[in-house]
Design a protein around this nucleic acid. Structure first.
Length: 267
DNA sequence: ATGCCCCATTAAATGGGA
């Protein structure tokens, strides 16, 4: 078994104790993080080692963005990837395992895209769409169709009607607009990715991984979105054993607005 | 609108999140 978690942690330094709890709860072999909000010199390397994650790949920047892969097992071929000519730390990759058992892991943080879903009026939205296109091109260029690869992270797009609390209301809201969903679909087709969670949890059932900080009672309102995803290449499809959304983590204080998603792969 | 909160930087605002 190989378990891979992804979590938009919204500041790693703020949530070290919660990573400890996450390890107690799920004991993932590999943890992909986004929004670490931490320059590399300040990354809590020792604290993560003490939790058992002695193998680390991280790429951060001061205050914003930042991605990481923490692993109990050795990592090789660690790469930070730049997209759209920017130095934002949004994509790091590494290989876990050797030979036939090698799996390439990508931790990805897609730009949020601002408020206005119009690429003419809102440069952030334009950049988001260009970033997703660039990622699609990256996967087509850097992987073969038979590769074993996992892409995990905050994609900031909720593609299915059941990935948001109200499909019709959200159609004009950034994260659920048709143009973003089309861009994500193109990215998915680049390597015929499998949306691992939807292999396990039927598309008819609502699943959310993010709830706004702004709701007075996030659980009572339950106006969530499924923004965090784990995709696998077809080579790994038959190894999908389970995918869990750790919703209880949203109760842990101080909470991230995202919760971890955990994929279990059979041998 | 989900909706007046959370995080980081820097020193009481401001930018960004989504």
């Amino acid at each position: 078994m190989l378990t891979i978690a992804t979590w938009n942690i919204n500041s790693i330094r703020k949530r070290i104790a919660q990573l400890d709890r996450l390890v107690d709860l799920a004991a993932p072999d590999v943890i992909c993080l986004q929004e670490t909000k931490c320059a590399d010199a300040l990354f809590p390397k020792k604290e993560m080692e003490d939790l058992g994650y002695v193998h680390q790949a991280y790429a951060g920047q001061k205050a914003y963005n930042g991605v990481a892969i923490l692993s109990k097992f050795p990592l090789s071929n660690i790469d930070l990837h730049r997209h759209c000519g920017r130095d934002d730390a949004r994509h790091v990759s590494a290989v876990v395992g050797e030979g036939d058992a090698a799996v390439k892991i990508h931790s990805l943080y897609v730009p949020a895209g601002g408020q206005v879903p119009d690429r003419e009026l809102n440069p952030k939205f334009d950049h988001k769409l260009k970033f997703v296109d660039a990622i699609a091109d990256f996967f087509a260029a850097h992987h073969g169709l038979s590769d074993a690869a996992v892409v995990a992270g905050d994609f900031n797009i909720a593609p299915l009607p059941t990935d948001v609390w109200d499909h019709m209301r959200m159609t004009r809201t950034v994260t659920h607009t048709p143009i973003e969903i089309a861009a994500l679909e193109r990215m998915k087709r680049a390597l015929y990715f499998i949306d691992a969670l939807r292999e396990v949890h039927p598309a008819e059932n609502p699943v959310f991984t993010w709830w706004s900080y702004r709701a007075a009672d996030w659980l009572a309102a339950n106006k969530g979105r499924r923004l965090d995803h784990i995709w696998v290449t077809p080579a790994l499809k038959d190894r999908i054993a389970d995918v869990d959304v750790l919703m209880d983590v949203r109760h842990w204080t101080p909470a991230s607005d995202h919760v971890p998603v955990v994929l279990t792969l059979k041998p």
